[in-house]
Design a binder for these strands. Sequence first.
DNA 1: ATGATTTTGTCTATTATTATACATAATAGC
DNA 2: GCTATTATGTATAATAATAGACAAAATCAT
Lengths: 420, 420
Amino acid sequence: MPPRDGAGENAALTNASDIFSLIATGAAVSRSALLDRSGLSRVTVTQRLNALIAADLIGEAARTLPSGGRPTRVLTVNPQIGHVLVANIGESHLHLALMSPEPAMVAQSTLRYEVAEGPTATLDRIAGGFRQLQAETGGDNGILLGIGLSLPAPVDYKRGRVVGPSVMRGWDNVDIIGPMANHFDAPVYVDNDVNLMTLYEYRRHFQLADDILYIKVGTGIGAGFIADGKMFRGAHGASGDIGHIQFDSDDPPLCRCGKLGCVEARAAGWAIARDLRALGFKAENARDVIALVDEQVPEAVMLLRKAGRVIGEVTADVVSLLNPGLIVVGGTLARGGDFLLSGIRELVYQRCLPLATRELNIILAPPQGDIALLGAGQLVIDNTFSPAGSADLLNRIVAGAAPPTTGRSESAKRRMDRAG
Amino acid sequence: MPPRDGAGENAALTNASDIFSLIATGAAVSRSALLDRSGLSRVTVTQRLNALIAADLIGEAARTLPSGGRPTRVLTVNPQIGHVLVANIGESHLHLALMSPEPAMVAQSTLRYEVAEGPTATLDRIAGGFRQLQAETGGDNGILLGIGLSLPAPVDYKRGRVVGPSVMRGWDNVDIIGPMANHFDAPVYVDNDVNLMTLYEYRRHFQLADDILYIKVGTGIGAGFIADGKMFRGAHGASGDIGHIQFDSDDPPLCRCGKLGCVEARAAGWAIARDLRALGFKAENARDVIALVDEQVPEAVMLLRKAGRVIGEVTADVVSLLNPGLIVVGGTLARGGDFLLSGIRELVYQRCLPLATRELNIILAPPQGDIALLGAGQLVIDNTFSPAGSADLLNRIVAGAAPPTTGRSESAKRRMDRAG
DNA sequence: ATGATTTTGTCTATTATTATACATAATAGC
DNA sequence: GCTATTATGTATAATAATAGACAAAATCAT
């Protein structure tokens, strides 16, 4: 039965956020799955779902799923519902994209960039690039669901700020969310690039695993770790810093961080490039190293193998500590085929107890475009379609950007009061 | 308004499981806190709470909390509601206890034990010891809330089994929950001792931290890790095995695991005892080492300091990887005062980037009795009073041990069907 | 085609929960 | 003692959600 007035219709929609979240996250793609997962009665599910379909937020896909009886109709979020804007800030370029809510790439652009530009100018340029992408793709992208930024530095995720000294000079403890939110009226998420690469691999390829350790071996070395389906970021967003774990050895190399004998100084792209230059080759960064490996230059292959064993040494420690079920090795140097991987495997199987390696998979990340950028899109979508995010989203859709404080019940008010 | 029949009263109780859980876990200790945290209306909270109070499951504490106005009355679980049985299986003894639901020790016993006895005999002896404790403490302990077992071996927590070869020969992949559940009609939880020590320190002393790394330095060395308030156990329960991380060095010592240069072989109680014996002292285990340290024997102090630096080397790696906010050092060797700790701190601050150590606390665990045993009690209580556990508990109380499947609604039935 | 099977929608009466308002209670600070 | 403040209980009417039953729809295996 239809509600008495427009406000009632809105209420029906905002109550439907749990249903919406289940569909949008893929936790329940059919009506009967919704019944199971939501815990609500059939009548309630039908009513809420109808509200979502009437508002054109949810639609039925063409395909159905076989069930043994009548096939289940598959429910999907209307892709027109909105879009996501993401940026990957690199040390020498900005990579921007507009994504659909799958998330999938719709349009992208690359800007030349110097990390020295500093936060304000950078964020302004990103905002400009975003507007251009929005204009290019016409006006049929729906509302802006959220913004995601990938940074090559430790990030305090909750506060959305770079923490500590890093490549991003001048960004330490500078507010990023505020300025971006001034440009666009949507939630802004900021995270470290390695974390986002980890997130993307996990959500796209290895969603079934409980935990995953991602090791990025590029010009630098870093790791991301998802425990129990949740990104682990550490106390200050500084987790995963395996590149600066030190090993004793004779004549330890000097690291760019100023310490002696770091993993990076032994095995990162810049370190291998350094060693190749010492041997008379031309190599500045990880890409150059891989180019030489692809040409099957023996010295390059040898150095990559050696890097694998160094990284394997740290990885073995990590495996003993965390006992992960899956280790994914990505980054530019991972494109050099199995040379890197075999070194890692060698050390892990040599050093760890059998129990920890019994069912451990160590694999190369599938080569793909800008994983950090895709990860930023995934981060925004995960947040947007989470139960809380879905509630916010439906509120935004129902009431524009008006705060949802009005007309709350006593208990809801209490909740708001305390939360504030 | 009272329901029409007895069954209705039971329904009121089982519906109250969310309220019960909030009180029992300490998430909400007053009526107004319940209003906030539950999201329910005042009327509903009052009604459900009254049902719990009428059933004598919840009571009001004598003390009140100041609020600025009328003080809030503090609600607590009736300690008579039930008890917990826990056992810590050591290599040379069994330590059993009956605990109240705080949890707090009510009665305990220690049995001589050889780990070679094997699972069946051991579990039977534990069951016997439990019955004796129940008899000793009279019949006013309420129902048995659950059983917790602490084992000195890697445990697959979900399956409740020892995994892999370990000190517990003959236990690998042997069902523990089944046999115990044959003796007692209550949920059985099994975990590794270091994990339980970690849990206890976290829940009792550092509940406010998001994450905690616990390092146990006793006869052996191990670590436990809580991320985001949740125990991290790894893919097969083998996480925290930092004792067998290897370091290269000249003349690496042989470890009892068969590898060379493990942390344990350099810094564990048995290794220090070995070195002390080589120097002519009498020392067999960690206790002996601490005894010598307490007598201020210079050689013992020197070796303990050295052990601290070795452990600090691993700890530095862990800090780089995880960026924990708090590291607690416990175990027998931690009772030797700051000698151990200073070595750990030295290496961590030397090797880690400032960002990771900026607000890092490294402290000694407060000396206390059998922490693993207390942790086992905490584990049972945490599970018992969790939302799901509370629902089960109230069902058990209302209907004896009858399965709660009868009289379910359509949606509840669906849930059960799929879950089965 | 037929029957078994599963999905999906809807009706009716009943039950659970909320909103709202009012009243009382218990403290601290003045 | 008075007042501000917060805690707590309850009555009433209205709303939301459920249970339980039925029926139609859409497939598969035979």
